[in-house]
C-alpha cells in the first residue's frame, strides 16, 4: 500500500498498571498501525504505580526501535486510578488527534485503530470503539440508568478505545478543567460523537471493574438522576405527612375519641415533618443548582454553526 501518510499528528495515550504480559504485543500493534499511517506520532504511557516489570518491558521495546519517535512514560506518584491517570496523559499529549486506550486489550481487528481515525475525519470529534454487548450486569445497569437520564443524544458504553480531536479536548477542558469521568464528559460536550460497535463482546475492558464511587459521582455530575430520586422521595414524604395531617384533622374535627393526647401529638408531628420535608426539597434544589454552577463553567454548548 503506497498511500500518502496522514500529516495530522497522532498521539496515543494508554493506561498502564501491572500489565507486564500485555504491554509488548499492545505496543507492537499500536506502533505498527501508527507508523504505517501517520507521518508523525507520539505514544504516552501513563504508569499508575506499576509494581511489576511493565516499565522495563517498554524500555526493552524502545531499545529495539531505530526510529526515534517520542515515547513518554508518565510515572504517577501513587496509585490514582484510570480516570486521573488518563487525564494526566491527555494533558501532556500534543497530537491533533488523540487515541485513548483505557486498557491494553487487543480484542479488535487489525486496522481498527486507523478505521476509527478515518471515521473521526468524516466529522466526528469523538469516536469510540466498543463491543456490541456490554459485559456484566452491573455495568449494563449503570449505563442503562446513565444513558436514560443524561439528556445527551449519545449513549456511553464500555469502550475499548477512543479517538478524540484536539477540538474535543479543548471543549471538554473549557467545561471543566479535570473531568471526573471522561466518557460522560465527552458525551456531554455537545460535539458529534460516534460509536463503532464490534461484533464480538470478547475481552472488553478486562482490567476495568466498574468502580462504584466513580459510577455514583458520574450519575450525580453528568445526569439529574440523583436530584430526581431525592426530590421524588422528599416529595413523596411531603405528601405522606400532608395526608397524615388531613387524617388527624378529620379525626379531631369529626369528634373521634382516640387516646388522650393523640391528636395534639399527631398535629405537632405532621406539621413539623411537613415543614422539614418542604425545607429538604428546597435545599435539594439549591444543591443541584450549586453543583451546576461549580461544575459547569460554560452555560451552553454548541455542536457547530451552519450558515445556509
Amino acid at each position: 500500500m503506497n498511500r500518502e501518510k496522514e500529516s495530522n499528528f497522532a498521539s496515543a495515550v494508554f493506561y498502564l498498571h501491572n500489565n507486564e504480559g500485555q504491554i509488548t504485543p499492545f505496543l507492537e500493534r499500536v506502533w505498527a498501525e501508527l507508523e504505517q499511517h501517520f507521518k508523525q506520532f507520539e505514544i504516552i504511557a501513563v504508569n499508575d504505580a506499576s509494581q511489576d516489570g511493565s516499565v522495563e518491558e517498554i524500555r526493552r521495546f524502545m531499545a529495539q526501535k531505530d526510529r526515534a519517535m517520542p515515547l513518554t512514560i508518565v510515572n504517577m506518584s501513587l496509585y490514582q486510578g484510570v480516570e486521573l491517570c488518563m487525564n494526566a496523559g491527555l494533558d501532556l499529549s500534543i497530537g491533533d488527534f488523540i487515541f485513548e486506550f483505557d486498557s491494553l486489550s487487543l480484542c479488535y481487528p487489525e486496522g481498527q485503530i486507523f478505521d476509527a481515525y478515518r471515521n473521526a475525519l468524516t466529522g466526528y470529534d469523538i469516536v469510540s470503539v466498543r463491543p456490541r454487548r456490554g459485559r456484566s450486569l452491573t455495568s449494563r445497569l449503570f449505563y442503562g440508568i446513565f444513558n436514560r437520564s443524561s439528556g445527551s443524544n449519545y449513549k456511553i458504553g464500555t469502550d475499548i478505545f477512543r479517538v478524540l480531536s484536539r477540538r474535543a479536548l479543548n471543549r471538554v477542558h473549557a467545561i471543566s478543567a479535570t473531568p471526573a469521568y471522561r466518557k460522560a464528559a465527552y458525551a456531554a460536550s455537545g460535539l458529534k460523537l460516534c460509536a463503532i460497535e464490534l461484533p464480538s463482546s470478547a475481552g472488553a475492558d478486562a482490567n476495568q471493574p466498574l468502580r462504584f464511587s466513580l459510577a455514583m459521582n458520574s450519575l450525580v455530575l453528568y445526569t439529574d438522576v440523583g436530584y430526581r430520586v431525592c426530590a421524588g422521595i422528599s416529595l413523596l414524604m411531603l405528601l405522606c405527612t400532608l395526608a397524615e395531617l388531613v387524617y388527624t384533622l378529620v379525626i379531631f374535627l369529626g369528634g373521634g375519641h382516640p387516646i388522650e393526647g393523640w391528636t395534639t401529638t399527631m398535629l405537632v408531628l405532621s406539621v413539623g415533618f411537613f415543614g422539614v420535608f418542604l425545607i429538604l426539597s428546597l435545599v435539594l434544589k439549591y444543591l443541584s443548582l450549586v453543583v451546576d454552577l461549580i461544575f459547569r463553567q460554560q452555560k451552553y454548548l454548541v455542536e457547530g454553526i451552519e450558515k445556509l
Binding site: 507521518k39 517520542p70 500534543i94
Partner: peptide, 10 residues
C-alpha cells in the same frame, strides 16, 4: 520541527 510546532500549536 514537527514536534515543536505541534506543541506550540496545541
Amino acid at each position: 520541527w514537527p514536534y515543536m510546532s505541534q506543541l506550540a500549536k496545541k
